[in-house]
Every structure is written in structure tokens, then in C-alpha cells.
Design a protein around this nucleic acid. Structure first.
Length: 838
RNA sequence: GCGCCCGUGGUGGAACUGGCAGACACGCCAGCCUUAGGAGCUGGUGCCGCGAGGUAUGGAGGUUCAAAUCCUCCCGGGCGCACCA
């Protein structure tokens, strides 16, 4: 990395070796690499610290540098942000557009187990490949800010965050049932074990009781929901986050248990139906199970509990919804009506949801109904739906959940269920039989991993086994190098002699290091701060730098991170705000997800299917500008789109057309009125599209303009300039080359042969359009008769209704359809349409 | 099962806030140029019809002067969650 060039300072450099060879044909190979080198030499894309210009922080989700290199999906997102960054720079913004590496992770470690090559080595060579590939696309990253999460300079601060959270009670160690992936040999966070399978390897996840480190993300559940209102994110992403957090309002009802001095607490969102309760179910892990089961049922209950707790998520899925369970022999009392509710144990009640105990209302909950019918428990009706059915509930179709009116419920009778819910909660609270509570699906974030290639958790244990934070002065708490890569099932760090010795040396005899590493999502939860101040040795980022650059204005990356990275990063930001390190609530103001690029056959690209497109080969054959344009032109960024090599020809032809157009540019030429209009219109349209991330329509507008220019004998220098400026963010190399040729070859510029950075097209201002020029063109008014198009007339823009009406009524084509009938109504839309109703 | 999103030519897709459906491009057809073409140029290309014209945005209704766009139901596809009490 070249640190000699101070950020924001552009070293002037004369380029004298441009042009000359093969000027007749468009040859991307001759121009792309050349300009990439010039741009980098001159630090063209460096973000300026301390600049007074308005800032714009445009960020890609940084990649995991995998051994297979960059794929066309990366290219899509990176091109989109590159275009946006270039556009914003031309608009006068001080743009921060950095790139880095989410470098810790399992694949490199798994490869090490197979091959013996150290993950550091694999990772660094992958980074080299990625860097080369990214540079070959002409992406305008500020490489002086490059970061890698695997470097001690970076993970020092990841560890510092751990300590910050620990100090503030937001990091804690606890014994809990956790998700264990036997294939990856590590525990996983809830978010990484969705659907009971490992997020990474798709193997089923088992439940295991282990002592692990957690981050208390649940403290922020409410803010994590609330603050979604203020960000410009895709609706589905916001919704997924809301669902994942899963806020529910209900009431915990306390039931006395007959014959023992114990109470069972059941959370419910439907207290309105509580007169219809006929049983209670405990989850297998519920502490009361042991305490209340009467001896007669002891054996049966115990074996059921054992069997249930040994189940994997996958077992549960295979079993489906078949209800199983055992009776404890005890009864709870429903205070509302004095009814005895038998207490059962069943695996359909999950220990980690609500209170781990459920009150069964089989008439109005499908699962309760299935359970009741399986064990002959009575079913009672307390709600009548709109169908009016008031009969005994004996069939599943009669079980009514969503709407209705209360019956058989004393003081609730006749009420709508929603009203009844409130009334019942008031009543239960007044009687002190229950308490309103809000629950969340979100769990605390389990961050321990029994893996090597991650940031070590900065904790040491004293000889009594008590955990102590590693003092800040010992950070970075360096990842030891002397480990074996074997799938052992325990943390590889436990084998490191150096790690153990280091700990004893610093802390004393008998002290042991924590041997787990942190989930890599911890590393990526704060990296966007580091880009603001990547070389800071005193802080994760300086206050001033944070204030200047954060939050991120535009964030682009895969939708697969909706409840992982994006949730964790929001949590980190909220914690930082709480502790005074940030002044904002949300890290990413705007978020967009690129759609998946599918293979030609419409399936996902994958190595095993052999349908992967390698961007290197496309660049080799068509050039980087063509690849960029192609990926942007196929459709809207967020859509899934199949790759079609044939279609690259279209954008390649366009670039060749543009290349030929240079010969038409003439100093002193006066453009036709049509072309003048077309240029202004394109400036307006392309600008609007870029702002809205609509690159596909921006490109088609440029194609329209190029087609119009091609029809002209000659075009003015200024029209050509405007065209190139509009093209510059999209196809930066050809735009730069043609800009250079324009500035050096046209007679007017013949005196200037030196090309300095200041003359690069990429530091020019975005062109302005003249609204008056757009008004010059006549408006085409569509003439409709009874809503059907019959004619079109051209009038001056802003023409008044009377004038248009008269013109339309006298039009021959309209006459034919009016045929003597009397118009009853005219609908006039300025400059667009006149509808004559007869 | 629940929630959300989406259905437009042979293809990818345009169509701003309800106002000419099919921009732009691929493909295809015809012609020109060329020793040759994965090159270039010109014209054509939703469907029916010689034509005037009619008809058309998954299907059926509805609202409106006017619907791809708004509403209801149905069909089809995608995504997310899933025994969440």
C-alpha cells in the first residue's frame, strides 16, 4: 500500500505516453489497464479527511476472500456502488468508498485441515487475487484505507469491543443449550442455525449444553425494532428483522398447583380465551417437571424428558406435528372459574419460548386442539366466529383462531376478542393473577466459536476458574501460531504451548487463556467505523473521523444478511451510542441488495454444476467497461437475473459505437435543435436514474443519445463532452480515453498536450441541464375519444386547454370518431393528453 | 400454515404520482456492404387483419373520462419464518 501519498493530496503527474497505437478500433485492453494505473498513481479516489465538501460514505459489504476468487455477483454490487461513488464525486461530494477483507472464517481453516496450509497463507493469497480482480474492473476504491479483520492491528479493536461490552455487562458467560454443528465442530448463534441447520455447511444442528460467551443484544430489542422506521431499507429486509426480533405483547398468568407449594407461569397472547383453558403443558426442560411429578408417573415422565432433550432440531422436523406427551399427575387451578387443569409435559412446548409453559385452549388454538384430541382432554368453545357455528368443537376446521365474539366467558360474553383480550388482562392484573409482559423471539448473541481462524476472546481464567478480562495494554491478544489443524471437536487454541505460556507469564502460574475465538460476525459488526480512521493506534476510530464520515450513506450487499450481519452491526452501533462513542442510532441509512446472478440455465452458479462465469475471462474477451455495463444493463439491481453471454454483445456494440462517435466531435459546431434537446434530456434523465440506482435505464438513455448522435453529420464539442461526462461513472475507462483525446486532439486544445490529474474526466463536475432547453421542444398531446387514442398533435409546451381543444376538435382523425356527437366533457392533462368524452 | 414480494412480446426488461403499453437491448426477418464474419449500415418485428381497424400486461370481476399501475377474488412463481403459546 502506498502511504507516501498523503490522503487528499493529488500529486500532479504528466502523462505523455497516451494514444498513438491502434486508434481506429476500440481496444479495451490497450486503454483499461493504462488508466487504472494512472488513477492509482495519482490517488484520484482518495477520500479527503477534513474537507469542507459534503461527505458521502458509499460502502459494499466487504467480502470474505475465498479461494475461488471474485464472482460475477461481487461484480454486480461493486459496480453499482462504484457508479454511485463516481456520480457523487462529480456532484461535488467528498466520497468515502473503501474496500477491505472479512478475512477470518471457516473455509480457510477447513482447507488447512485438508492441506496443512496455514489459514493466514491461504487468506493472504486470496486477498491478492481479489485485489487484482477488483482493480481490473476499474473500481474507484480508496485503497489507502484497506483493512483486513485478520490483522492484529484490526482485531486488537475487535477484542477491545469485547472488553467494552464486558465492562458494561453486555458480554457474559453462561451455561445454556446451544446449537452445535458437528460438521463445523463449533457452536453457532441462533441466527446461524435457522431451520435447525448450520448456516455454513447445511448440516443438522444439535442442542448441547455448554458454557459460552454471549452478547446481550436483547437489551436493544425495542430500539432495534423502533429505529427501522427511520432508515431507507428494502421493506422485506425491515420486515424480516422485525419478525426475527419477534415482539409479542401478552400476559404471564400464574396458576396455583394443587397439592404442592408451587406455581406455574404461562405466557399467552390470547388471555381472552382463558375461560376455555382445559390443560397446561410444560416444556421438557421446565424446572417444575421434576418438582411436581407424582411418583406414580415418575418413570414415564423421566424417560420422556430424556428422549425429548436428546432430540436434534432435525428429529423434531421429521416427526412433524404429531403430538406426544405425558401426564405429571398434577393439576393447576384456573382462578377464573376454579377449573382443574391437568399438567402435562410435551415436546411441542419449547423451553426457550415464553415461560416454557403453555396454557392449553384447544377450542381456539390448533396445536392445543391436536394435543387435546390425542389425549382425550375436553375441548370448550369460548369464541363464535362469523359463520355463527356455536356447536361443540370436534373437528379441526372448527378451531377458530383469528376473529370472533366471546361466549361462555362470563364478563367477556358478547365482546369482540380484541376487546376481550384487553379486558381480561386488566382483570387478571387487578386480581394479581397475571402481569402484562412483552416477549421477544430475539435471543442473546452467542459469540464463542471452537475454531482457530478468528479473533481470540480476550479473557483469562485464574486458578479458581474465574474469568478476567485481558487488560487493554495486552491487546492485541495475539492469535497463536503453533497449533495443529485437526478436527478435534475442541478449540485448536487449547493445543498452543505459546498461548498457555504467554498467559502464565503475564498473569501468573495456573492462569489459563480462554481458548475459544469470536464469531466472525463480531469482526464485521464494526468495520465500517474503521474505514473512517484505518490507521489509528489509540482508538478503534477517532471521534473526529467518526463525526466526519459516519453513518454510511449507501450500503450495498447481499440479502442473506438480513438477520445476521445487519442486525449485529446495528446492535454494535447502538451500544457505541449508549457508551458515548457515536452520536447516531443507525449505521446504514440506505441499504440495497443486489439480486442473485444466476447461470445461463437459470440455476444458481456453482462449482459442482460447472456453470460459473469467471469475470476475468469476460474482461479478457470484452473488457471491464463492457462487463460493468452488461451487469448494470440486464435489469434492476435488486432483481435476480440469469447471465446471458449473448447479451454482452449489445453493450459491446454500444461501446464501439461510442468509440466511433469521437470522430464526429467538432469545435465550433452548432448542434441541431433535436440533438440539443436530446442532450439536455439525457443529462436530466441519467442524473435522476443514477441517484435512484437505476443504472439499467441510465444506460438505455445513453444508448438513445448515442443513436441520435450517430445520425448527425457532426456534433458539437460540448454535446460530446456532456455525453462523456454522463458515461464516465458507468464506463470509466473509455470515457477517460475519449475525454483525453477530445482535450488533446481537437484543434482548440492542440496547445495542451500535458494531461494532469486535474484534467481527468473523473474529477469534472456533473453536467447541468437547462430546463428552458427542455421546454423548447413541442409537447405531443395524445387525443383520445372516450378514452381511446385517435390522434396526436404537437403543441408548444404549456399551451392552454382552449387552444388544444380547438386543435383537437378540428383534427381529421378525431372528427371521424366524433361524427357529429356533442362532447360532454374534456379531460386535459397539461402537455400530455386530451380526452374527449361524447 | 402465517407474513411479504412478484407475474408485461420469442428473450432481458421500459412505462415518473393512474394518462400513447412494449423504451433500450438481445434474437429473428429482408436488404446493402464484405473474399470472409460472433463486424458495420438501412428497414421491419406483440397478436388478429390486405386494409380501415380490432385486440393485448397470469385469470375473473370492480372503481375511473382513463388501469400494467388502485380494490376484491382466483391461479402461478419467489423469499422469509415456521409447534413462537
Amino acid at each position: 500500500m502506498d502511504r507516501s501519498v498523503k490522503r487528499g493530496y493529488h500529486k500532479p503527474l504528466i502523462i505523455e505516453d497516451i494514444g498513438g497505437k491502434n486508434m481506429d478500433n476500440y481496444a479495451p485492453k490497450d486503454i483499461e489497464k493504462k488508466w487504472q494505473e494512472k488513477w492509482e498513481e495519482q490517488g484520484l479516489y482518495k477520500a479527503e479527511d477534513g474537507s469542507k465538501k459534503p461527505k458521502c460514505y458509499v460502502l459494499d459489504m466487504f467480502p470474505y476472500p475465498s479461494g475461488s476468487g471474485l464472482h460475477v455477483g461481487h461484480v454486480e454490487g461493486y459496480t453499482a456502488t462504484d457508479i454511485y461513488s463516481r456520480f457523487k464525486r462529480m456532484q461535488g461530494y467528498n466520497v468515502l468508498h473503501p474496500m477491505g477483507w472479512d478475512a477470518f472464517g471457516l473455509p480457510a481453516e477447513n482447507y488447512a485441515i485438508k492441506s496443512g496450509v496455514h489459514p493466514k497463507e491461504t487468506t493472504e493469497s486470496a486477498i491478492k487475487t481479489f485485489t487484482r480482480q477488483i482493480k481490473s474492473l476499474g473500481l474507484s476504491y480508496d485503497w489507502s484505507r484497506e483493512i483486513g479483520t485478520h490483522t492484529p492491528e484490526y482485531y486488537k479493536w475487535t477484542q477491545w469491543f469485547f472488553l467494552l461490552l464486558h465492562k458494561n455487562g453486555l458480554a457474559y458467560k453462561a451455561k445454556a443449550n446451544v446449537n452445535w454443528c458437528d460438521s463445523c465442530k463449533t457452536v453457532l448463534a441462533n441466527e446461524q442455525a435457522e431451520g435447525g441447520v448450520c448456516e455454513r455447511c447445511k448440516n443438522p444442528v444439535a442442542q448441547k449444553e455448554m458454557e459460552q460467551w454471549f452478547f446481550k443484544i436483547t437489551d436493544f430489542a425495542e430500539d432495534l425494532i423502533k429505529d427501522l422506521d427511520g432508515v431507507d431499507w428494502p421493506v422485506s429486509t425491515k420486515l424480516n428483522q422485525r419478525n426475527w426480533i419477534g415482539k409479542k405483547e401478552g400476559i404471564s398468568i400464574v396458576y396455583e398447583i394443587e397439592g404442592v407449594d408451587e406455581k406455574v407461569v404461562c405466557f399467552t397472547t390470547r388471555p381472552d380465551t382463558n375461560f376455555g383453558a382445559t390443560f397446561i403443558v410444560l416444556g421438557a426442560e421446565h424446572p417444575l417437571v421434576e418438582k411436581i411429578t407424582i411418583p406414580k408417573y415418575q418413570n414415564e415422565v423421566q424417560s420422556y424428558v430424556e428422549k425429548t432433550l436428546g432430540q436434534t432440531e432435525e428429529d423434531r422436523i421429521i416427526q412433524g406435528r404429531v403430538k406426544t406427551g405425558v401426564f405429571t399427575g398434577r393439576y393447576a387451578i384456573n382462578n377464573l372459574n376454579g377449573k382443574k387443569l391437568p399438567i402435562w409435559v410435551s415436546d411441542f412446548v419449547l423451553g426457550y419460548i415464553g415461560t416454557g409453559a403453555v396454557v392449553g385452549v384447544p377450542g381456539h388454538d390448533m396445536r392445543d386442539f391436536e394435543f387435546a384430541t390425542a389425549f382425550g382432554i375436553p375441548v370448550e368453545r369460548v369464541v363464535i366466529a362469523s359463520d355463527g357455528d356455536a356447536s361443540l368443537i370436534t373437528r379441526a376446521e372448527q378451531v377458530q383462531e383469528a376473529e370472533g365474539e366471546m361466549v361462555n366467558s362470563e364478563f367477556l360474553d358478547g365482546m369482540d376478542i380484541h376487546e376481550a383480550k384487553e379486558k381480561m388482562m386488566d382483570y387478571l392484573e387487578e386480581k394479581r393473577w397475571g402481569k402484562r409482559v412483552t416477549t421477544y423471539h430475539l435471543r442473546d448473541w452467542l459469540v464463542s466459536r471452537q475454531r482457530y481462524w478468528g479473533a481470540p476472546i480476550p479473557i483469562v481464567y485464574d486458578p479458581e476458574g474465574k474469568a478476567h478480562p485481558v487488560p487493554e495494554e495486552h491487546l492485541p491478544w495475539v492469535l497463536p501460531a503453533d497449533v495443529e489443524f485437526k478436527p478435534t471437536g475442541y478449540s485448536p487454541l487449547a493445543d498452543s504451548k505459546e498461548f498457555a505460556q504467554r498467559t502464565e507469564k503475564i498473569f501468573g502460574k495456573g492462569w489459563k487463556p480462554e481458548v475459544d475465538t469470536m464469531d466472525t460476525f463480531v469482526c464485521s459488526s464494526w468495520y465500517y467505523f474503521r474505514f473512517a480512521d484505518p490507521e489509528n493506534k489509540e482508538e478503534f476510530a477517532g471521534k473526529k473521523a467518526i463525526e466526519q464520515w459516519l453513518p454510511v450513506d449507501m450500503y450495498v450487499g447481499g440479502a442473506e444478511h438480513t438477520v445476521l450481519h445487519l442486525m449485529y452491526a446495528r446492535f454494535f452501533t447502538k451500544a457505541l451510542k449508549k457508551f458515548g462513542y457515536a452520536k447516531f442510532d443507525e449505521p446504514f441509512l440506505k441499504l440495497r441488495h443486489p439480486g442473485t446472478i444466476l447461470a445461463q440455465d437459470g440455476r444458481k452458479m456453482s462449482k459442482s454444476l460447472g456453470n460459473v462465469i469467471n469475470p476475468d475471462e469476460v474482461i479478457e474477451q470484452y473488457g471491464a467497461d463492457a462487463l460493468r455495463l452488461y451487469e448494470m444493463f440486464v435489469g434492476p439491481l435488486s432483481d435476480a437475473k440469469p447471465w446471458n453471454t449473448k447479451n454482452i454483445v449489445g453493450v459491446k456494440r454500444f461501446l464501439e459505437k461510442v468509440w466511433r462517435l469521437r470522430e464526429k466531435a467538432r469545435a465550433g459546431h452548432k448542434d441541431s435543435a433535436e440533438l440539443e434537446y436530446a442532450v439536455h434530456f439525457a443529462v436530466k434523465k441519467v442524473g435522476e436514474d443514477m441517484e435512484a440506482f437505476g443504472c439499467n435505464t441510465a444506460i438505455s438513455q445513453l444508448m438513445i443519445l448515442a443513436n441520435a448522435m450517430e445520425k448527425e453529420e457532426a456534433i458539437s464539442e460540448s454535446a460530446w463532452e456532456s455525453f462523456l461526462l454522463l458515461l464516465a461513472p458507468l464506463a470509466p475507462h473509455i470515457a477517460e480515453e475519449l475525454w483525453f483525446l477530445l482535450k488533446t486532439i481537437l484543434p482548440r486544445w492542440s496547445g495542451q498536450v500535458n494531461y494532469k490529474l486535474e484534467t481527468s474526466i473523473h474529477v469534472q463536475s456533473w453536467p447541468q441541464y437547462d430546463p428552458a432547453a427542455l421546454m423548447k421542444k413541442k409537447a405531443r398531446i395524445v387525443v383520445q375519444v372516450n378514452g381511446k387514442v385517435r390522434d396526436a398533435i404537437d403543441v408548444a409546451r404549456g399551451a392552454d386547454e382552449e387552444q388544444v381543444k380547438n386543435l383537437a376538435l378540428s383534427s381529421e382523425k378525431a372528427q371521424k370518431w366524433l361524427a357529429g356527437k356533442i362532447p360532454v366533457k374534456f379531460i386535459y392533462v397539461q402537455d400530455k393528453l386530451l380526452n374527449i368524452v361524447v
